[in-house]
Amino acid sequence: MNKDELDDLEDEIDDEDEKMFEMYRRQRMKEMMEQQKKSSFGSVLEISKADWVDQVNKAGENVWVIVHVYSEGIPLCKLVNQHLVQLAARFPTTKFVKGRASVCIPNYPEKNVPTLFIYRNGDLKKQWVGPHEIFGMNCKVEDLEWMFGQVGAVPTEMEENPRKQIHDVMQSNIRSTTTGGMMTKMIGE
């Protein structure tokens, strides 16, 4: 090949390379925009009863929504709100909302707060009602991450429950004795 033929070949390769790079750039831009659309949350949104349907039930296809129903002046509710702010920043593809019980659910019993609901595609997937189910004032951000991860609402990398289950020997003995006693009574009759 002479110099002119090599130059022509080089120009052809450049055009092909440019086309390939342009195609790759468009594909990558599309992926980034889809990811940005999915990662559009990142904070905790305050809602009211009027917002509930749009923000929770109609949040979008395959969008996980974590709802915290709380009351003002309850320290555990304040703690859970703080934890949710941290989790919302770490998991921007999950929508986090909160609403005062008196505003979102009229006559909601105060003994039931804090309450956490998890929705996906408008369906309730899981709920934790009251301080006992949320570990009271001992609740840690890791506990909530684990709970949400077990349902699938956040893509956690936690492999082990941070709150190891404690085997209560006294309770299990009471249960065994009660169950065994009932069985003996039933068999003896």
Rank of each mutant, 00 (worst) to 15 (best):
I66Q: 05
G122N: 07
N112L: 06
M186P: 00
N62W: 02
H132Q: 13
S172T: 15
D17V: 14
M137Q: 13
G136Q: 13
D123Q: 14
V169S: 06
K164W: 00
A89V: 02
M183V: 11
Y70P: 01
S172M: 10
Q86T: 12
Q171V: 12
I166A: 06
K164D: 05
I74D: 09
L9D: 08
E16S: 09
N121A: 06
V151W: 04
G73Y: 11
P106T: 01
I105D: 01
V53G: 00
Q55D: 03
A50E: 12
K125H: 10
N2S: 08
E110H: 09
F21P: 00
L116V: 13
C104H: 00
P131S: 15
N173R: 14
S172E: 15
F96D: 06
V67Q: 02
S172V: 12
K37A: 15
Q82P: 00
L84Y: 14
V63C: 08
E5F: 00
N173L: 15
G130R: 02
M182H: 07
Q55K: 14
E72V: 07
L116Y: 02
R26K: 13
V56L: 04
Y108L: 06
D51M: 05
F41H: 10
E5D: 11
K126N: 13
K3C: 08
K98T: 01
V97R: 01
I174S: 05
N173M: 13
I187K: 11
W52E: 08
V85Y: 04
V169C: 02
Y24K: 08
N173D: 11
